[in-house]
Structures are given as C-alpha cells and as structure tokens.
Design a protein around this nucleic acid. Sequence first.
DNA 1: CGCTAGGTTGAGGTACGTCAAGCTAAGTGG
DNA 2: CCACTTAGCTTGACGTACCTCAACCTAGCG
Lengths: 248, 248
Amino acid sequence: MCAEPTPRAELEPFLATLAARDYLSDEEIATLQAASWHFRVFPAGAEIIADHSKPHQSCLLVGGLAARGMTLRNGERQLSAVHILGDFVDLHGLLLRVMDHAVLALTPCRAAFIDHAVLREITNTHPHLGRLLFTLVAIDASIQRNWILSLGRRKAEARLAHLFCELFARLEIVGGVSGDSFAFPISQNTLADILGLSIVHTNRTIQHLRASGLLTWRSGTVTILDHEGLAELAEFDSTYLNLFREER
Amino acid sequence: MCAEPTPRAELEPFLATLAARDYLSDEEIATLQAASWHFRVFPAGAEIIADHSKPHQSCLLVGGLAARGMTLRNGERQLSAVHILGDFVDLHGLLLRVMDHAVLALTPCRAAFIDHAVLREITNTHPHLGRLLFTLVAIDASIQRNWILSLGRRKAEARLAHLFCELFARLEIVGGVSGDSFAFPISQNTLADILGLSIVHTNRTIQHLRASGLLTWRSGTVTILDHEGLAELAEFDSTYLNLFREER
DNA sequence: CGCTAGGTTGAGGTACGTCAAGCTAAGTGG
DNA sequence: CCACTTAGCTTGACGTACCTCAACCTAGCG
C-alpha cells in the first residue's frame, strides 16, 4: 500500500465533519489530536462491534464503508445506517453502554478507537466540544428519521435515489467524492439490506435508475449524471444533514 | 378539570425517565426543578413545533401524546417517533438549530418549554446532567433504529405488535399504564402514518391482532391480554430502551 | 478449466394499496 | 325526540409494488 499516514492526517475527515457544523478552536482541535487513538483495520464483512456488547471505547471510521445492522430471527437483515470516513460510528455507545445493534465493515475498513473515559473527560472539561460530539449523535438521529420516511413512504426508486443524494452530500464534506463520482464497492445483496428490499427488486430498481440516465454504478463507483433530477426524484432536502456552521 | 399541578409535580415523569437510566444527585434534581419552565397546552392536531423553524427553546411533554412527522409532496405523511409524557420531545433542537420535521400533538397535550440558553448552561456547569440529557437523544435514536428495522423488515402485524410492546414499556416507567392498559386515543388514520401503512390495511391488521386475542383497543384504551405472545410476535427485545441504571 | 460470488431475467405469488360503499356513534339544530 | 351531519371504522373488489423461486449469465481466480 502506501506509507502509514500520521494519526493527525487520519483525523482530518472527522475534523472536516465537525468544521462543517461549527467553529472549532485551535485548542479543541489540539485536544482531539492529542487524545490517544488506537487504529485497527477490518476486512469486508467483519463485525467491528458486536450486538449486545458493552464497549469501553468508541470507534471513529477513517476509511471504508461501515453500517449498523440488526437481524430478525428469520435471518432477514436491516441496516439502519451507512457510515463513511470521518463518522464517529458508535459515539452513542458512550451514553448507551449496551449495543442494540452490530457495526459491520461493508468494505475493508480502517478505524480509530478512543476510550470512553477520555471522551467523558472531554465532555467534563470542554463542554462546547462535548456538545459538538453529541451533535454528531443528533445528526445521525436526523439521518435515521429521514430514512424512516424513506422506508415508510418512498417507493423503491425514490428510496435509492435519496440514499445516493445523501451519500454524495456527506462524502463531499470529507473529500470522499471526485467530480460526480464516489466509491461504493458493495454488493447488491448488501444494498438490499440497506433499502429494506429483496435482492431481485433492488437489482431492478438500480436498472431503472440507470436507464433513466440519472446515474451509473460500475466496478464499485457511483457517478451521478443528473444531480438535480436525482434530488427531484428523491425529494431530497439537505436540511437534516445540518450542513451549516452554527454555535452549538 | 383538576387543580393546577405544581411545576415540580409535572416534572416527575421526566425525572422518572432519567432515573430509569442513571442515578440523579439531589443537586441535579434541584437544578432541573429550579429551571424556568414555561407551560403551554395544545389541542389535538396542533403543531407544537413547525418544520424548518429555528426554535430557541426545547419542549418537554408533560401530558398527552405527540409525534414527529414529515410529509412528502404527494401528501403522504410518515411519523418518525411517538412521544409520551416525560419525553424531552425536541431536546435535539438545542444541537441541530433547524427543525427537519414538525412536532405534532396527537391528543391534547401539555408541554413545558425551557430556553436553549438554560440547557446550554446546564451542559457547561453540570457535565454529568448534560450527558444524561444527551443520553435521552441517543435513546430516541435507538428507538428510531428499531423502527427502521420494523419498517424495513417486519410485516404489518409484527410492526404494530412491536409498537404496542414499546409504548407499554415506555409508559410503565412514567406511570402511564394501569394494569395491562394504557390510553391510546388516536385515530386509525394517525396510526397508519406511524406504521407506514394505508388506513385500510392498518384497520385489517388491528382486527387480526384483536382476533388473535393478544390485545384489545376500545374507546381510546389499549389493553394487552398476552404480553408474552405479543412480544414473541414482535420479536421485542427491550435492550434498545436502555432500561438499566448505569453511570453515563 | 472449473469454481464461485455476484448480477440478471422470467414467471408466478403475496402483502399491501386504492377505490368506493356502507356502517356506527357522537354531536347539532329544529 | 328526530333528522341531519360528520368523523371515524369496516368491508369488498380489484390493482400493484414488491417478494420468491429458480434458472442462467458473467467476471474473476486458482
């Protein structure tokens, strides 16, 4: 591969997500960078955090795609969130203590772990930074609310369109897009578990989206050909992503 | 009606939700009770907080049922959360600043408002209490994840069963159940918007649940006849509600 | 060359939606 | 006390979005 990046560089996408929502002081940035991060890699399909476990660390994704997943007894799986680099995947583990879902690596992933004790100390000594971290939890919840709307009321095609609109917007913040394209190297099987659809119907929905000329998806790369048309189809309104800098 | 309850008494359900998850010091309780709460009532159907508004207060529900709702252009509505007394309905508004959904009174509601400035000050001066408040936001997110599983993978009947299991468990904490019954005075139309189903199918699903002897729902009251059977049908696992006292 | 994981296609089934009508109970005005 | 209205519940008939099963196709890989 390439030379081992410095921890400092690996935190950049995370700092970018924060900086997209509020103003970070140099001292706050330094605090985050000075913290003790432990890096680990996971192959595609690996379980990063097990369901019902009681983690003592939280996990920041610095590379790859991950997801939160729950499974019914009959084996059907539903993914409730897709995470990209810069996402503090299980920050809420600090508050919830017991996982009610698993965190899975959808692609090979690189993650940085930080002790809950350190995070708790940050919320004690840096209240604003603490609020900023919890804002990320609230934004995750916001994304989930929108996904509830998708699952409950949007048809398959609009649902998929909305997912791609959202991923593009989120990846843009952290430098995860190049031009109109972003890496999305997952199987249609996995995508079906995100969309709450069967594999077959997922396949047909993708074909329909491709045929309408809104996007392509080849060899693990999605290219959006018509941003406006896609957003129109999805009724995409980015308010819920909180892409504005405000004192929080 | 009855005599005006004291603010102190009206906060009890809220303190109970907190106390179900962590240990509150007397000083923390006093801080919450001493805060300046403004009470308002809303008729059924009223908009408690408007979509896309920028609230400067957060809203604690002290009576009635409320919900978060989003609407598509074609008029279809999806409710993403049902709130009961003691719920800090839009605590996340403190962090998100712009509402990405509306908060609606499903029944006549009584709510207590508190300035964001006060909440922010609490997170500055009482870090543990602040974390506890944000834990409520994280639990809301947890509930939403479970609802994503319901909408994506559970069939109508299990979805409805899960809703009733959850409401019973949550209402139990705040003294909102009597025996096996709780008040649920909403129309099937509204219920359909919670379940992401049509009215007609919602009606048939309810009838099927009733016929299977698991519960009754008459004149605004749900009575669960077979808790175990209902939980079995719903695959209900209360882990996600965080009903355990832990240092957070 | 054969194996495998993933993508694609067709045929038929089911859970759910839509439309339209009739029912019930509560409220309103005469 | 009785029309009349209205909101909500119920039922039937029919339509459709999505599911299931099963086959085949394709590309990568040892």
